[in-house]
C-alpha cells in the first residue's frame, strides 16, 4: 500500500513478463482500466506499482485460423462486437459482448482480457466462453501455456497471480451447433440479475446435445449439461422448457442475494433465463436484440 505508486509501461510482452517476475506484492497490471479505476478512485485498491500493458501491440487484434477464432487479450469489446470473424465463428460471443453494461464508453475501452481476469460474477462474457469451451493462453517467466477456460475458472488465483499475463483467447467454431444468450436486467446499461448462454445441437427437430451456462445467479458460473441429457432424443416443447427451468434453478448451489435481487428470486430467474436462452437457440436468428 502506498500513497505514491510508481508506474511502468513496458514496450513488449517479454519486457512486461521480466518486470512482473522481479516485482514483489502490490502490483496491478492495467490496460483499459475499466475494472481497476473504480476501486482506485474509492481507495479500495491502493497499488504500489502499475504495470501498463496497453502499449503492447501484439496483445491487440482478432484473427482466425481455419475454424479457430483468436482474440488478443487487449481487444476491446467494441471491436469484438462487429468483427466479421467473430460474427462468423462465434456469434454467441458477439451477442454477449454486445449485451454488456456500461454503454459504448465502456465497450470502447474495456478489454476481453480484463473482463476475464476480473472474474466478476455479474459479467456477460464468461458464460459464453464456458459454453463455447474456449481456451486461454497465459505467459509468465516459465513461458507460454494454453489451458481451457474451465480450468482457469477452477483455479482460485485465476491461474494468473501477479506474475502472469493473459495473452489470447481461442474459440473453435462448431458449425452444426446453434446458440442463444439471454440476459435479465433492469435497465439497458446495467448488470444482469441472471444470464444464460446455451449451445445446442439438433438433427432436424430432435435435440442431440445441450449445454447451458448460467451467470449472475451465484458467485461462480453454473454449467448444466449432464443433468439436461434426459431432454435429448426428442423435440423441444413446452414440457421440455419447464423441465429446463426446474433443472437449471436446482443447479444453482447458493444463489447470490444482493441489490440485483434476493436469492429465492435469483434461483427462479436462473431457470427462466436458461429456458429463454435455449428457446433463442432454437429460433431462427432474429438479430442482436433477441
Amino acid at each position: 500500500m502506498s500513497l505514491y505508486p510508481s508506474y511502468a509501461r513496458p514496450r513488449s510482452l517479454q519486457q512486461a513478463v521480466d518486470l512482473l517476475s522481479g516485482l514483489q506484492g502490490g502490483v496491478v497490471v492495467i490496460a483499459g482500466g475499466q475494472e481497476i479505476l473504480p476501486s482506485v478512485n474509492y481507495g479500495v485498491l491502493m497499488p504500489d506499482v502499475y504495470v501498463d500493458i496497453g502499449g503492447i501491440e501484439e496483445l491487440i487484434g482478432i484473427s482466425s485460423v481455419g475454424d479457430e477464432l483468436v482474440m488478443g487479450a487487449l481487444t476491446v469489446h467494441r471491436d469484438i462486437q462487429g468483427h466479421a470473424d467473430v460474427q462468423r465463428l462465434a456469434p454467441l460471443l458477439a451477442q454477449s459482448v454486445s449485451a454488456m453494461g456500461g454503454g459504448w464508453q465502456v465497450h470502447n475501452r474495456g478489454t476481453i482480457g480484463g473482463n476475464i481476469v476480473a472474474m466478476h460474477p455479474l459479467y456477460d462474457i464468461a458464460p459464453s466462453l464456458l459454453a463455447l469451451q474456449a481456451d486461454i493462453e497465459l505467459i509468465d517467466a516459465a513461458g507460454t501455456r494454453r489451458l481451457s477456460f474451465a480450468d482457469l475458472l477452477a483455479d482460485s488465483s485465476h491461474g494468473l497471480g501477479t506474475k502472469a499475463i493473459l495473452t489470447r483467447v481461442f474459440v473453435t467454431a462448431s458449425p452444426q451447433s446453434s446458440w442463444g444468450y439471454y440476459k435479465l436486467k433492469n435497465t439497458s446499461g446495467a448488470y444482469g440479475s441472471a444470464n444464460a448462454a446455451a449451445v445446442l445441437e439438433t438433427e432436424g427437430e430432435i435435440l442431440t446435445a445441450i449445454r447451458v451456462v448460467i451467470g449472475a445467479a451465484a458467485d461462480q458460473l453454473t454449467l448444466v449439461s449432464d443433468a439436461l441429457a434426459g431432454l435429448t432424443g426428442a423435440a423441444y416443447d413446452a414440457a421440455a422448457g419447464a423441465e429446463i427451468e426446474r433443472i437449471c434453478a436446482q443447479a444453482i448451489g447458493t444463489p447470490l442475494s444482493d441489490h440485483q435481487g434476493d436469492g429465492t428470486w435469483r434461483r427462479a430467474m436462473a431457470g427462466v433465463v436458461a429456458r429463454r436462452a435455449v428457446e433463442a437457440a432454437l429460433l431462427p436468428a432474429t438479430g442482436p436484440d433477441s
Partner: peptide, 18 residues
C-alpha cells in the same frame, strides 16, 4: 472522446494514454 471514441474519463487512467 479519446481518439474519436467515447470513454468515461473517471475510469481511464491518465498515465495509460501517453
Amino acid at each position: 472522446m479519446i481518439d474519436g471514441a467515447v470513454a468515461k474519463s473517471c475510469i481511464a487512467m491518465a498515465a495509460t494514454l501517453p
